[in-house]
Design a protein around this nucleic acid. Structure first.
Lengths: 336, 336
DNA sequence: TTGAAAGCGCTAACAC
DNA sequence: GTGTTAGCGCTTTCAA
C-alpha cells in the first residue's frame, strides 16, 4: 500500500517545506490560510495519515490510555468491563487508543508494566494490585483507580462502599424477619468479597444474631460456584431462611440449586444478591439486590482522567466511596 | 520521575556506544557475553524501559494489535468480548498491547481508522463494517475477521454458521411436535439476526409449516427487548406453542414475561435460545439452545493472527463457517 | 509567513 | 566485537 505518504511527500507536491506542512496540518495560526487549505487538500487526496509513532516520539506522549484490570479472566464481570470500555471510548478525546491489559497476565508472564501510555485507568479488585499501581503512579502520569479503595490518599480513587452496602442488605433482611441467614462469599483475594463478608458478619453480630459457620460458604463470583455453594448448604440438614450471595451471578446459581433440590424461592429460602446485574430483574424470581454504583464510578473515573490528561485540575473530587442502594424485588420473603 | 533513562544513559555508564547497548538489550550475538551481562545489569539497576515509540518508529511496527468491534455498546455480548480479550492477551507475543475500538465510534466521530497497529482482529456483526474492513485490509497488514462471514475470500475469516444452527433448532422443535412456532429476532442490522431469521423462515417453509407473521417480533438481543417482544406475543390472543429467541438473553426476558403473565414454561409455551450463554444452564427453566462455537472462532482467529504477525503462513485454514450444535435442556416440551 | 536544522530514542548499515 | 553515522517521521527552535 501507499503507506509512505509523509509530510515530506505533501511538502514536495505543495512546494513548501515539510515544516509548513506540519504546521498546516496541526492548524497552526502561523500558516497562511491559502497554503493551509492547499495542504489539507493534498493530504486528503493522498489519504495521508500521520505516523503516530513519530509524533509520539517527539511529543513525549503516546496517545494511548491504558486500562488495567486485575484479571481479564475472572472476577471482573464482563458487563462491567464492556460498559467501562464503551464509556471510555465515548468520553476520551479523539485519536486516543484504549489499551486493555491485566495485572494477572503481567504477573504470569513476569513482564514489567508497559510505560507507553498517557494516562491509566485501573479497575482494581485486589490489594495484590498495589505493586502495579505503585509502578503506574511512579511514572508521574495521570492514574485513576476504580472499584476498590486503595490505601494511598494521593491517588484519584472511586469505589463502591461494599461494606456499607452489605450492612444495608443485612439490615433489610433482619427487618424482613430473617434470623437464620447464610452467605455465599466471593473470590477470597478480592477486596469486594472481603468487605461484603465483613459487613455481613459485623451486622449480624451488631444485632446480636448468631452466625452459623456452616452457612458461610465460599464461592468465586461465578454462577456455577453459587450453585455448588448452595448445594453444600442444602445438604446440611439445618437450613437458613435466607442466603446472602456476594453477587447476583452466584445468587442465580444458588436459586437454581434450590429449584433442583425442590426448595422454593422465596417461600422456603430467600435470596439477596449484590451488584444489580442486568439479569437480576429478569430471573425467576426477580432478585432483590444491592445496586453497585457502577455508573458513578466509571463516570467519575473517566472524567477525572480526561481532565488530568488535558492538564486541567479535575473538577471531580479526589476520592469517593459511594454507598450502594437497596433494590427490593421478589426474592426475599417477609417472615412474620 | 527518572523517565530519562535511555540507551545512551546506559552507554555512558557502561563505557560503550549506545549501539552496543541496543544490541546487548536485544540479545544480539554480536556482543560479548561479558559486556552483555554488564549492560543488562545496569539497565535493570536503572529500571530502564525502552521507548516503544522510538522503537516502533524505526522498526516500522507498533507492537499494537487492534481489536475492532462493531459496537462496544450493544450487540456484542459482554461475555464474548471479555473472553475474546482474555484469550488474545494469553496467546499474543509478550510486549504487545491490545487496542480496543469500535466501528460505531469511528462512524460517530467521523474519524479515520487508526493505522498504528501490526495486526487487526475484527469481531464483525454487520455488513456495515465492510467499509472499515476494506480500509484495514488495504493497509496490507494482517487482518482476521471473526464472527461473521464476509464476502471477500482473500481474508482470514472465522464465523459461526448461524443459518445452519437455526435449521438445527427448528428441526428439533418440529421433532418435538411443535407446529405453531414464533420467533423473536435480533438487531436488524446484524448479520446474525438476518441469518437466524432466514434459517427459521426457510426451515418452516421447507417442512410445509405456515408461519404466522404476528409471531415474528423484533428484538435487539437485549434481555429487555426479549421481554417486550414476548409481551406483544402474549397479548395476541392466539398463542404459539413455542418461541425461538434469536439469542439466550432475549429468551430469558421472554420467559420472564411468561411468568409475569401467568404462562408456564415449557408446559404452555416452549422456548429455544441461541448462543449457549453462561446463564442458560442456570435460568429457570434451563434453556434449550444452540451453542455458538465461540471457542473455535476465537482460537482460530487468534492463532492465525499470531502466525501472520510473525510472518509465518498460518497453520490454520483461510476461512471457516462453523456449524453450531444443539444443547437440549428443559425449556422445550415434547408435544404428542 | 516560511524554511533550515536539530533532535526525540532507537536500529542498522558500514566501517574498523 | 564494537563504534560511527545515518535516518525513521515528526515537531520545534531559530533565523530570515
Amino acid at each position: 500500500m501507499n503507506d509512505k505518504v509523509t509530510i515530506k511527500t505533501i511538502a514536495k507536491i505543495a512546494n513548501v517545506s515539510h515544516t509548513t506542512v506540519s504546521r498546516a496540518l496541526n492548524d497552526s495560526p502561523l500558516v497562511k490560510e491559502k497554503t493551509k487549505k492547499e495542504i489539507h487538500e493534498i493530504a486528503e487526496r493522498l489519504n495521508y495519515s500521520p505516523n503516530l509513532n513519530a509524533k509520539a516520539l517527539v511529543e513525549h506522549r503516546s496517545f494511548i490510555i491504558a486500562v488495567y484490570f486485575t484479571d481479564l479472566n475472572s472476577g471482573t464481570s464482563p458487563s462491567f468491563m464492556s460498559e467501562m470500555l464503551h464509556q471510555i471510548k465515548e468520553m476520551l478525546p479523539k485519536g486516543y487508543e484504549i489499551a486493555v491489559d491485566s495485572f494477572a497476565s503481567l504477573r504470569q508472564s513476569k513482564q514489567a508494566i508497559n510505560l507507553r501510555f498517557d494516562g491509566a485507568l485501573v479497575v482494581s479488585q485486589s490489594s495484590t494490585d498495589d505493586v502495579y499501581i505503585e509502578q503506574l503512579a511512579n511514572t508521574g502520569k495521570p492514574v485513576v483507580i476504580l472499584n476498590r479503595k486503595v490505601e494511598r490518599t494521593d491517588l484519584f480513587n472511586y469505589a463502591s462502599d461494599d461494606y456499607s452496602g452489605t450492612v444495608t442488605a443485612v439490615e433489610y433482611l433482619l427487618r424482613m424477619g430473617h434470623r437464620r441467614i447464610g452467605i455465599i462469599s466471593g473470590k477470597e483475594e478480592f477486596t469486594s468479597s472481603q468487605n461484603r463478608l465483613a459487613g455481613f458478619v459485623d451486622t449480624l453480630q451488631k444485632h446480636g444474631i448468631s452466625l452459623n459457620n456452616k452457612w458461610v460458604v465460599a464461592g468465586d463470583y461465578s454462577v456455577k460456584s453459587g450453585y455448588n455453594a448452595m448445594e453444600k448448604i442444602l445438604n446440611l440438614g439445618e437450613l437458613p431462611t435466607c442466603v446472602f450471595a456476594s453477587n447476583d451471578d452466584m445468587a442465580m446459581g444458588a436459586m437454581r440449586a434450590c429449584e433442583d433440590y425442590g426448595f422454593s424461592v422465596p417461600e422456603q429460602i430467600s435470596f439477596m444478591g449484590f451488584d444489580d446485574s442486568s439479569y437480576s430483574n429478569y430471573c425467576i424470581p426477580r432478585l432483590t439486590t444491592i445496586k453497585k454504583p457502577m455508573r458513578e464510578i466509571t463516570n467519575n473515573g473517566i472524567k477525572t482522567l480526561n481532565d488530568l490528561i488535558n492538564n486541567q485540575s479535575p473538577k471531580t473530587v479526589q476520592s469517593l466511596n459511594i454507598k450502594p442502594s437497596l433494590v427490593v424485588r421478589e426474592s426475599v420473603k417477609k417472615l412474620n
